[in-house]
Amino acid sequence: MERVVQQTDYDALSCRISAIYKGYLPSPCYQLAKCGYMGYKEIHMDYINGLKHVSRRIHGKVTRTLQSSYPVMNYGTYLRTVSIDLELNGILSKIGKDQRVQILDLGGGSDLRMVPLLRNYPNLKFVDVDYSESTKVKSKALWETQGLREFLKLQEPQGDQLVRSDRYELISCDLNDLNQTSVKLDKVTDADVPTIIITECVLCYMTQDASQKLIEYLINHYKSGHWVSYDPIGGSSENDRFGTIMQANLRDSRNLEMPTLMIFNSKEKYANRFAPLQTSIQDMWELFNKIPQDEIKRLKSLQFLDELEELKVMQTHYVFCKSQWGNV
């Protein structure tokens, strides 16, 4: 199961690379104007090149569907990426550039958000946490990419070690193992510093018990913070079969399980995972409908989106959830 879940990282990366290749990302009005993400495309292309040196197999997997990516997938990737980026930058700019702050990107795999964020926020420390198979690949790929290696001021890893720097850490651990996770996080984070936790398609692969224990531990351990989460929900209305079909499809095609898809199957139930924190949640279709007309026009010019019905069915089954605790 661990490998099956770990491999989903390559799907996410592949989707992001497709969205960049087709021009959906970076979004000029969001990621460039509001988040100040410079060189977004170059960062990703450099990383993909680095990845090629690490594993041709993974590189092939990630770039295979580049030419023929469906608009509906690119829209969804755009929505999840931009929503999280906007929220992170909103929180960070509110905390201020002078304050110490730390981000824990749990199960983020090949996510490269740390690059623009570390550049823009000089007192930020960024911690990537994932399975060792994932962190090993990422460590090597970052080291192979001269631009990223130099920018992140990575120290040369010795033996089995992973790359690291004063402000960037890669941690190998299984988030289902709370003891291991807490011990490893303790070594590189400070419980008194404001903490932002990202779980982007991560909680959905964990059991109810393991995920709730993880949430409970982290929001109690860190004195103050924000939790930003993106996940699918199975759907709760009587005739809604999206979730059960999704579970069956993923089980049949790749033996992938989503144990809580039908448990936290509505926005309300999903948000309740973070009780008693102050939490707000929206589905991605609601977020799609808030995009300004100029940006919609730009997206439409990239690829012809033939219908909205399918996009709606899919995006009403993914949620963006944000919670807050302590004094931040």
């Binding site: 799907d11 990516s69 997938m73 699918p232 499809n249 790749r254």
Partner: peptide, 22 residues
């Protein structure tokens, strides 16, 4: 139903890899 193998019709075995956000 994909598993409901009636007669000798072939069934959609080649499931898409990228049709969910993972």
């Amino acid at each position: 139903q994909p598993q409901n193998d009636v007669g000798n019709t072939i069934l959609p075995t080649r499931k898409p890899q990228m049709d969910y956000f993972l």
